[in-house]
Design a protein around this nucleic acid. Structure first.
Length: 395
DNA sequence: TCTGGGGTCCTAGGACCC
DNA sequence: TCTGGGGTCCTAGGACCC
């Protein structure tokens, strides 16, 4: 989808249409999550801070993101695309891979099909998208980036090297800022240069990734389109939050940990998972960020146990600065044990958690919660673009 | 108004075991 | 009297993605 969150907001509010605007988070220290194309024309980019954006484009409008809306629209897109092939992978809230190998004969020409899908998304959902077509995911993704905004791009096999020769190394998904810099130091700026570079020299520099880089530069990607319901199991569940003000007070930090542990616990229980390893993330005022993790003998999904472990870990750290962000992540996940397998004390906790979850599910996010949290829990959180509408990450 | 939030994968070093 | 070798698991950090 093109400038997804921003486009949904522009579609729904005529006052935003054709204007430089951006979707932002709800916190005091948010960044731009999705700038409109009119804003991008001024050099405004995703991840920018608000003052920076205002400097580039003083008339830019900011809109707080609406999680519910983007997930609903995403489900509508999924439904529409699914009607063309069941071999569809949901890559993120606004990106999808369709493997047309098995169903293309039903539709004929691939480019006609792409235009049809594009116009249906425009007519039925009022949104622009870009479609890339190629014989693997790596190149289809590259093609879709090249097609933006609002276009269709095909990379035919015979034109592959001509196209790759021109583009910069970080155009490919998997080559980011650091790798691009390292490659640039070796005199490699385009994929053509990368492809012709000595493979063993790449391997010496990048280890196993050296071979991968070479294959990528050749446009080779053997990865499959992973259809709905066949996604890998979730490996970790976590939440973090940047405070509106940096914090040093221990009791305040513990309150934040309780809130984060509760959010993580709820998601684990909803997914019927327990985790063994608890990881605490701390970001200082200076932005220096580090993690400390500890494993328990028995996996848990209990808010209090997660919280207590997080507090223990925090207690073992000698804080050197005031804290800007805390995060709690649970990993080493396993299926939750059935109620019958629990000891008596754990059985009570299990029932209590389930009951609270059920009440909150029915009557609103945090109707019943910890007394110490009664003053917080007010601000809405903006969705991560990595959210998925189906499969494991539905929680 | 200085820098969000949710993930995955890989690597390196150390503890521990046989 | 001066230190083997193979394997697994855990922790911490970093690159990358949307």
């Amino acid at each position: 989808m093109d400038a997804y969150f921003a486009s949904v907001e522009q579609r729904d509010d005529p006052a935003l249409r054709d204007k430089p605007m951006a979707v932002v988070g709800s916190g005091a220290r948010t960044v731009l999550v999705s700038p409109s194309y009119q804003a991008r024309a001024y050099g405004v980019k995703t991840g920018m801070r608000k003052p920076e954006a205002l400097l580039l484009c003083p008339q830019i409008l900011f809109v707080k993101g609406d999680t519910q809306k983007y997930t609903t629209v995403c489900s509508q897109i999924v439904e529409l695309l699914y009607s063309y092939t069941p071999d569809m992978e949901i890559c993120s809230i606004d990106e999808f891979f369709l493997d047309m190998a098995n169903t293309l004969h039903l539709y004929g020409d691939i480019e006609d099909l792409a235009s049809k899908i594009k116009s249906r998304i425009k007519e039925e959902l009022g949104l622009n998208c870009s479609i890339g077509i190629a014989h693997n995911k790596l190149l289809a993704k590259l093609a879709s980036e090249m097609a933006k905004p609002n276009g269709i791009k095909i990379i035919p096999k015979q034109d592959l090297s001509d196209i790759l020769d021109q583009v910069e190394t970080d155009a490919l998904c998997g080559i980011g800022r650091k790798t691009k810099e390292t490659l640039a130091c070796m005199g490699i700026n385009t994929l053509g240069q990368l492809r012709r570079y000595n493979v063993s020299a790449l391997e010496r520099k990048f280890g196993v990734n050296g071979k991968r880089l070479h294959l990528m530069a050749c446009g080779i990607d053997e990865s499959d389109v992973i259809p709905l319901g066949q996604e890998e199991e979730m490996k970790s569940v976590g939440h973090s939050m940047t405070f509106s003000k940096d914090a040093t007070d221990g009791s305040l930090l513990r309150k934040y940990l309780l809130e984060l542990s509760d959010m993580v616990g709820r998601r684990l229980r909803k997914a019927r998972l327990c985790g063994k390893t608890i990881r605490l993330t701390v970001r200082y005022k200076s932005f220096f960020t580090f993690t400390r993790q500890r494993s328990m003998s028995v996996p848990t999904d209990d808010t209090k146990k997660i919280y207590e472990m997080a507090v223990t870990i925090l207690g073992s750290v000698r804080l050197k600065e005031s804290v800007r962000l805390l995060g709690v992540t649970v990993s080493k996940l396993t299926q939750e044990p059935s109620e019958g397998q629990l000891f008596r004390e754990d059985k009570r906790k299990y029932k209590l958690n389930r009951l609270l979850d059920a009440v909150n599910e029915r009557y609103g996010e945090s109707l019943v919660s910890f007394a110490s949290l009664s003053t917080s829990r007010k601000h809405k959180r903006v969705i991560s673009p990595a959210w998925r509408p189906h499969g494991n990450r539905n929680y």
